[in-house]
């Protein structure tokens, strides 16, 4: 499973698929304050990205891949 939901954190690992976005959205609706850990994430299908953008999530750990981190920064307007 690419997304693990913890109490106040959502941890992404490897590649988050399109199906994951559905559960991500549900979880974030119930836990709007949840923080996102992308450190182990290598790619996320853009539906997930849209959910993160719409929920204005705060990222507590960026992906290790610098370019991916930049992309996500730009999407979440963290630059």
């Amino acid at each position: 499973m690419a997304i693990t939901f913890k109490k106040d954190r959502i941890v992404f690992s490897d590649v988050a698929s399109g199906e994951d976005a559905e559960r991500l959205l549900e979880w974030l609706q119930k836990h709007p304050k949840a923080k996102i850990d992308l450190s182990a994430c290598t790619h996320l299908q853009p539906a997930n990205l849209q959910v993160l953008m719409a929920a204005k999530c705060s990222i507590i750990a960026k992906p290790k891949d610098k370019l991916l981190a930049d992309w996500i920064d730009s999407a979440l307007q963290l630059i």
Partner: peptide
Amino acid sequence: LAELDPYCC
């Protein structure tokens, strides 16, 4: 969020 359609790009 309640109105978001994540599958509409």
